[in-house]
Nucleic acid binder design. Structure first.
Length: 203
DNA sequence: ACACGGATACTA
DNA sequence: AGTATCCGTGTC
């Protein structure tokens, strides 16, 4: 994707009509805007709708139906361990459908608001995990199926900065297909949920 | 190390 | 209805 424009531009549906792994990698360094708050995405994971046992679509008919009725760029949100909301983006229309789980970001705007919601002062603890991120941004089931490509206050944006260095690693916390290196992090970022274990590739 | 806690999809 | 499972966080 081009990053040549002078000002940050909302990521369009075409971005999410490619392979989930490409989308997950290219969202690293992108900005996530949510109301008054925003941050730079530093950690994502890719999940494939087919042949990926860690993806909800593998076992849940309701998620396969979600994929059917939504376009790429729609938010898929679910409750994990009965405690935390998880923010995913639907990727659809390329060679394979799937999701990108947004796992962590470096906060840039609305810091005080996020500190209040999280109940912590440390900036690196505000959004350094998928559950922390949704708590800081107040993302809930009410945002499920939200179109993240049309509303300027709930979207992803790409700036014109130089390409970032991305490290791939194994996905976190899953029991099946756990060895796929489909977790992507911004190299050296202190805002990730966990340190990288086995760096797989760089870009 | 462990408690916390709800949606989803099975079984019957 | 009951049961197994689940992409986490905070505190012990």
């Amino acid at each position: 994707m081009k990053r040549s424009s002078a000002e940050p531009v909302i990521i369009s549906p075409a971005f999410f009509q490619r392979e989930p792994l490409v989308c997950a990698r290219e969202l690293i360094g992108a900005e996530l805007v949510w109301g008054e708050c925003a941050g730079v995405i530093v950690e994502t994971e890719a999940y494939l709708a087919e042949n990926d046992e860690a993806c909800h679509a593998f076992f849940r008919p309701s998620v396969r139906e979600f994929i059917e009725r939504n376009r790429g760029g729609a938010a898929y949100i679910y409750l994990n361990y009965g405690v935390h909301w998880m923010l995913n983006v639907l990727v659809k229309g390329g060679s394979a459908d799937g999701f990108v789980l947004i796992r962590a970001m470096e906060p840039t705007r609305g810091l005080e608001l996020m500190k209040q919601r999280r109940g912590v002062e440390s900036e690196r603890q505000l959004c350094s995990g998928p559950g922390k991120l949704t708590q800081a941004l107040v993302i809930t089931k009410a945002d499920d199926e939200r179109d993240l490509c049309s509303d300027p206050s709930h979207c992803f944006r790409l700036g014109d900065r130089a390409p970032v260095e991305v490290v791939a690693d194994e996905r976190i916390g899953i029991t099946r297909a756990a060895d796929f290196p489909w977790r992507f992090t911004l190299r050296g970022s202190p805002f990730v949920s966990r340190a990288v274990k086995r760096p797989f590739v760089d870009s």
